[in-house]
Design a protein around this nucleic acid. Structure first.
Lengths: 201, 201, 201, 201
DNA sequence: AATGAATGAGTCTTCATTCAT
DNA sequence: TATGAATGAAGACTCATTCAT
C-alpha cells in the first residue's frame, strides 16, 4: 500500500550487517593479537572505522561482543564437522589427514580468537568442549566405520589425539616461508601415519 | 626495550626466599588460569598469602613479575634440553618419545604460564623462539645421529613437528582421569611412530 | 626528557573549552595552595565540578596537566613582557615601577602555580629561566635606553634586582585588606626609588 | 652511688644528638630540594645514613619530623631577631641594610626548608606569621627610634616591605658566580636607599 | 636499640559503559 | 541514528608506619 518500497530499509539493514561483520573481524584480530583483556572497546571500534557509540549499538557489552564472535566460530566449526561427515566414507587415511589439515587452515583466524576468549570470558571455556567433542566423535566414528576391530575406547583415544595434533596447524603460519611447505607436509604425514597405524591395529 | 630488572630487592632473609617462590607459584597458576591481563596483583598476593606491599617489595611491577616467572621457565627448559642431550645417544625411538613426553609433563605448569605471558607482556614472545630452537636443534641432531640418510632439512622439519606435537601434552591434564592414561599412551604412540618412520626414510 | 603532550585530546565542542579552562583554574588554585605533590587529581576534578575521567579526557596525566598550566603561564608572561616593551620609551621611573607592579598583580595567580610546579615537576625549573631572562633583558634595555652612562653590567644587575623585588608583589594578597593599599604603595615606592637612583648614577 | 659513671650514657646521648642533627639536615635538604610531599621517609633516612627504623626512633611520624625541623628554624630565627635588637641603636641605614642581608644569608638553608613545609604541613603556615611579625616589629621599632616623624603605620608598612625584600636574598646563591657579588651589592643598595628615604620622610 | 621486611590505605590512571547533542 | 564526551569502579603502584628479628 505504501509508496515507500521495502527497499527503503534494506540498504540500512545491509549496511548494518556489513558493519557487524567488520566489527567482528576487528575484534577477532585484536583479541587474538593481544588477548581479550588487553583489547579495548575503543580500539575495536577504531579498527572497524566505527565510533564507540556505534559499536555499542550492536553489542551491548564487551562480553556480548565476545559471545557473538564465539557464536560465529561455533557456526563455522559445526559446518566443518558437517562437511567432514558428508564425505567421510570415501576418504583414504591420507585423504582424511589432508582434509583435517585443510579444515584447520580455514578455521584458523576465528579459532585463534576463540582460544583468546577461552580463559578470559566467563562461559566460553565450557562451550568449546562440545565443539571438540563433536569433532572427536565424528573422527572416531569415521575410524570405526573403516576398521571394525577398533574398540570404541581406542577409537576415541585416537580421535582425541588427532584433534590435538590438528591444533598445531595454526602454528604453521608464523613459520619462515621456506619451511611453510614442509611444515604442512609433515603435518599431513604424521596424521596419515598415525591414522593408518590405528586402522591397522 | 624497557629493561625490567626482575627483582627489585633480592631477599636477604630465608623467609624472603620462601616468599618469592610462593609468589612466583601463585603468579604461575593465576596467569595460566585466567591470563596475564585478567590477573590482578592483589589476587597474586592473596593467593601467596602475602600483602600487596610485600609483593611489590620483591617485584617492582607486574611486568617484572612476569619477567621473573619467565626467567624461571627459561632456566628449567634449558635444563631439560641439557638433560636430553646428555642421554640422547642411547635411546631408541620409543624411549626418545617417552622421554620427550615426560619432559613436557614436568615442564607443564611453568610452560602454561609462559604461554599466557607470550602475547601479553612486551619482550616475551621473542624470547620463546630461542627455547624452541634449542629444543628443535637438539632433537634434529639426535635424529641425524641416528639416521645418516636424513637430510638436514628433513631432520629439521621432523624435529619441528615433534616439538609441535609435544605441545599437546599439557592438554592431557584437564582430561577426565580415566582418559589420562590412554591419552599419554597415544602421545607416546604417535611420536614413536613418527620418529621411527622418519628414521627409516 | 619525557615529552608530555600537554593535551590528550583537544576539546571539539564549546563545552570542552570551558571545561578545560575550569580544570586549569582549579589546578592553578590547588597547586599553589597546597603544592603539586599534595594535590590529588580527584580534588582538581572535584573543584572544577568534573569527574576524574573527564579530567583525564583532556589531560592524560598529572604531569601533562602541570605542563599545560605552565604553558598558559608562559604565554601570559610573554605577553606581559611584550606589552612592556611596547610602551617602555615613554615611561618615567615612577610610571615604570607602577607598570611592573601592575603586571605582577595580573600574573599573580598563574605565577604562584608555576612556582609550586618548579621543584616538583621534571622539566619545569629550566623553563622558568628563559621567562626571567626575557623580563630582565627587557628591563635592562629600558634602563640603558634611559641612561647612557649605565654600563651593561650594572644595568643587568639592577634589572635582576628589580625582577626579584617584583616577586614580592604576589605576597601582597594575603595581607589584611587595610594594609593592602600601603603595601602596594610601598612596592611602587621602593622600585621607583631604586630605578631613579640607578638612572642617576 | 653507682659505680657506673654518668659518662656511661653520655656517649649514647651524644650519638643521639648527632644523629638527630644529621636527620634534620637531611630532611632540610630534601624538603627544600623536592618539596615535603615528594620526599620519602626512606630517602631521608638513607641520606642521613640511618635506617628507616632508626629515623622513626627519633621522630614518630613524618609530620613530627617536619615539626622538629620547623622548631629549629624558629629558634634560629628568634636568635637572629634578638641579635638585631641588641645592636640596632648603633647602626646607620647602610649598616642596617648590611646586617639584614647577612642575617638572611645565615638563615637561608633552614628557611628554604621552612618555606617548603609551609603549604604542605598542617599548622606550619600559621606559625610563620609570628616570626615575620617579630622581625617586622623589630625593624619597625628601630626605624621609629631613628626617625620620630615616622608614623607607626608608615613604619610598619616600610618594615613589611623590608622583610619582603629580604626574602630575595636566598635567591642570590643560584646566580652565576660573576653576578653573585653585584647581586649582594644591589641588595644592600636597594635596602639602604629605601631605608634612608623612609627615615628622611 | 637497630634493622629492614611487611602492611594496607590512598594515589594515579584506564576503560567499559552511558547519555546529551 | 551516530557521535564522542562524561562517568566512576577497579587496578597498578607508593610510601608512611609497624613489628619481628
Amino acid at each position: 500500500m505504501s509508496t515507500v518500497s521495502p527497499m527503503h530499509k534494506a540498504p540500512k539493514r545491509e549496511r548494518g550487517k556489513v558493519r557487524v561483520e567488520a566489527l567482528l573481524d576487528a575484534a577477532a584480530f585484536l583479541f587474538s593479537d593481544r588477548g581479550y583483556g588487553a583489547t579495548t572497546m575503543t580500539e575495536i571500534a577504531a579498527r572497524a572505522e566505527a565510533s564507540i557509540g556505534s559499536l555499542y549499538q550492536f553489542f551491548p557489552s564487551k562480553e556480548a561482543l565476545a559471545e557473538a564472535l564465539f557464536a560465529r566460530y561455533e557456526e563455522r566449526a559445526a559446518a566443518s564437522v558437517h562437511a567432514l561427515s558428508a564425505i567421510a566414507d570415501e576418504l583414504s587415511a591420507e585423504a582424511l589427514a589432508d582434509f583435517l589439515v585443510d579444515l584447520m587452515v580455514d578455521l584458523r583466524s576465528d579459532r585463534n580468537a576463540a582460544v583468546a576468549l577461552s580463559n578470559s570470558v566467563a562461559g566460553i571455556v565450557e562451550r568449546r568442549q562440545p565443539l571438540r567433542d563433536a569433532m572427536r566423535h565424528e573422527v572416531a566414528s569415521i575410524l570405526r566405520a573403516r576398521c571394525l576391530r577398533l574398540t570404541e575406547q581406542r577409537a576415541d583415544a585416537v580421535a582425541w589425539m588427532i584433534t590435538q595434533v590438528m591444533k598445531v596447524v595454526p602454528a604453521l603460519a608464523p613459520q619462515e616461508n621456506s619451511g611453510q611447505g614442509s611444515a604442512v607436509f609433515e603435518a599431513r604425514r604424521i596424521l596419515s601415519l598415525y591414522i593408518a597405524d590405528a586402522l591397522a591395529s
